[in-house]
């Protein structure tokens, strides 16, 4: 077969692509992607599916498939139901702007009344009114989707993975990231009004808490301040860096720090930090986000 030289990608500055096209690609390509919440839900789905398959020894595979088909036929989001509320740190690795800790917060939720065998059709909405998983929404540019609050602990009518959907009110099953289990965050998640769209923009929580502030809540604080107060965000991130240099969310911290630096116009530092990130986390899914952040600053 004739061999081809791999073309230089247009995103590559060495390519001959028009500059604005490069920027459109860099900024526009993620637009159809999931929000961090959606991605986290997908991660939870994977956890539940895989756990079900493993527990039921293969029988769950086809069963799950059948259930899913039924769900789709019904046109309902059946599969959004009955998913374990799990600390899915892996799901955090998405490329979105936020990094998904809002969902991680959900794990700190008090045990919700186990909503059992809810009819398929209204399950998500009904369950969202439960005093269940606290999901702090991401600030600013995230979609204010009420479905963020879904992820109800209800088993669906077609119970796909009996083993995977325990009715016990302890929604933490085998958290893959132990460090996140400590999200006994003293902060804003309490401000949740059922069905409302709580905002985490302002310093609603104890904003200057330092002692005992968890790794995650530090990042959360930084994230919440990013829009209005990038310098404050950066301070929180530096605090995170000094306290949790190799923390579970070191990558997320670095991405946020780069974002803050870009917002502050400290481009050189942002670039330096991006370069360090690339060295330290060569295969990270966040590198795309970083490229977008840097492209933002360099745009016309």
């Amino acid at each position: 077969m004739k061999r081809f030289e791999e073309p230089i990608r247009w995103l590559d500055p060495r390519s001959d692509a028009p500059g604005e096209l490069r920027r459109w690609i860099a900024e526009g390509r993620d637009a159809l992607g999931p929000t961090p919440e959606q991605l986290a839900r997908l991660g939870e789905f994977a956890t539940a599916t895989a756990a079900g398959g493993a527990a039921a020894g293969g029988a769950a595979g086809p069963g799950a498939g059948a259930a899913k088909v039924a769900a789709v036929k019904g046109g309902q989001a059946l599969a959004k139901v009955g998913i374990l509320k799990v600390v899915a740190a892996l799901a955090v690795a998405g490329a979105g702007a936020g990094v998904g800790w809002s969902v991680l917060h959900g794990t700190g939720a008090p045990p919700a009344p186990p909503a059992v065998e809810r009819p398929v059709d209204e399950a998500p909405k009904a369950a969202s009114a439960l005093p269940g998983p606290q999901v702090a929404p991401p600030p600013e540019d995230a979609v204010p989707a009420p479905s963020t609050l879904d992820a109800p602990p209800a088993a669906s009518g077609t119970s796909t993975h009996p083993a995977a959907v325990p009715l016990s009110p302890a929604p933490r099953t085998a958290p893959p990231a132990p460090a996140t289990g400590v999200v006994a965050s003293p902060s804003p998640s309490t401000a949740l009004a059922p069905g409302g769209a709580p905002r985490a923009e302002g310093p609603t929580g104890p904003s200057t808490t330092t002692a005992g502030e968890s790794e995650l809540s530090l990042l959360d604080r930084a994230h919440a301040r990013m829009g209005a107060d990038p310098a404050g965000a950066l301070r929180a991130l530096e605090e995170h860096r000094s306290r949790y240099p190799q923390g579970t969310f070191a990558q997320e911290r670095e991405v946020l720090a780069i974002e803050a630096l870009v917002h502050l116009g400290r481009r050189k530092e942002a670039e330096a930090r991006a370069a360090a990130f690339a060295t330290q986390f060569p295969g990270s899914a966040h590198r795309r986000r970083i490229a977008v952040l840097l492209a933002l600053d360099g745009g016309p």
């Binding site: 993620d30 994977a46 956890t47 892996l90 799901a91 490329a95 893959p176």
Partner: peptide, 9 residues
């Protein structure tokens, strides 16, 4: 999980 985390988006 790993596949979803890496390739879900």
């Amino acid at each position: 999980q790993a596949i979803v985390a890496e390739h879900g988006a």
